[in-house]
Design a protein around this nucleic acid. Structure first.
Lengths: 195, 195
DNA sequence: GAGCTGACAGATTTCAATAATTGTCAGCCA
DNA sequence: TGGCTGACAATTATTGAAATCTGTCAGCTC
């Protein structure tokens, strides 16, 4: 028996650690239980399956990313174009640094995100909505040319796929990424701007 | 002995057929030789290694794509913006239809292209140059706003990554791809246009 | 002798046995 | 009684011996 009662949060943290250590294909529920000094049956008391456990890990991870991004984009003192630029830049650099600093862990999350596409597409939907709101603000303020904010937001996210989609993580190691991203973003902003 | 002497072109064709039938991980040099009714030693007379043979397949493949694209983009009666739009659209639909009609073969191609990145990056370089030339024309004719054609070409290709990079082939099965691509392209053209 | 064959060594892949993991649940114990 | 354990069936992964493949080359054949 453990000193403190086992809870979901503790299990998720242990799972994250096990995933970091062994990688997505080697990490087992038994490993998680061992790390917690508990039998694997106890883990199944809190999570119905291995899949659900992994889903919880990725959900928490994405929630944290979302919190970080929300902070950068909600500075009301900035103009909508600046806010959008900030949001995009923050999104890119957050991913790039994670992919560069801990490629193993990043690859792990990539695998998990693929397996649990529901969770990650909810994340994308949220991101899309954030962009849409800023674009709508920008159109209202006259900074951006008129148009459908939802369609524009979708276009912006799609056009920057190369810089935020983990499928392109290998390209992020090149020193040119920075300039390439800036290049695409300014091309987009040239189109967005009111004239 | 075969009726006609064995040549590289015949071997490449047979390899393509074997790849189509068995997929990239199952296809062997022995299979190619069997299909040609020849010993595998004869294949090694024309190609130094299995890798070189596969490289030849992908090179021919990409050359054919390039020929097709060149035809669409070199119509001198069209304005540069129209030519660029055509080139992009042709590039997208060529890949989409291939990925949709023969997913097995496309996946094979994808694996080979990954393994032989030199060949495919040469292809990208050529594509980039084609776009650059059209952009330069467009700037000269006053259709496009002034700027560095090479940088703009790079931006255009990067911004449309999602619609031409095989990493996103699964997304191409969605019926929205068409509208999404059109959305991004028009966003880009809005920025490119002279004002 | 140009073009091809097939035996060969070393590397890689397959396959079946063996082991480990996932998920369930009756019972233990604080 | 709520939380945990550990034995268990079903599934999945590991392993290593056997089979196959890659690449070379001496020699055959036309």
């Amino acid at each position: 028996m453990r000193a403190e009662p086992l809870d979901a949060e503790t299990i998720v943290s242990a799972t994250e650690e096990v995933l970091r250590r062994y990688g997505p294909e080697k990490a087992t529920v038994l490993d998680v239980a061992r790390m917690l000094g508990v039998s694997h049956g106890s883990v199944y008391r809190h999570f119905p399956s291995k899949v659900a456990l992994r889903e919880a890990v990725i959900r928490r991870w994405l929630d944290r990313v979302r919190e970080d991004l929300a902070a950068t984009a909600e500075d009301a003192r900035l103009t909508p174009p600046d806010r959008l630029r900030r949001l995009l830049t923050a999104m890119f650099t957050a991913k790039w640094t994670k992919a560069r600093e801990d490629p193993e862990l990043f690859a792990t999350f990539r695998v998990l995100a693929r397996e649990h596409s529901t969770v990650s597409s909810a994340h994308v939907a949220h991101l899309l909505d954030q962009i849409r709101a800023i674009v709508a603000d920008g159109i209202a303020s006259g900074d951006f040319a008129p148009g459908d904010p939802a369609a524009i937001a979708r276009g912006v996210l799609h056009a920057t796929t190369r810089f935020h989609d983990p499928a392109h993580a290998t390209a992020w190691h090149s020193p040119e990424v920075d300039a390439d991203a800036e290049n695409v973003v300014s091309l987009l902003f040239q189109g967005l701007r009111a004239r």
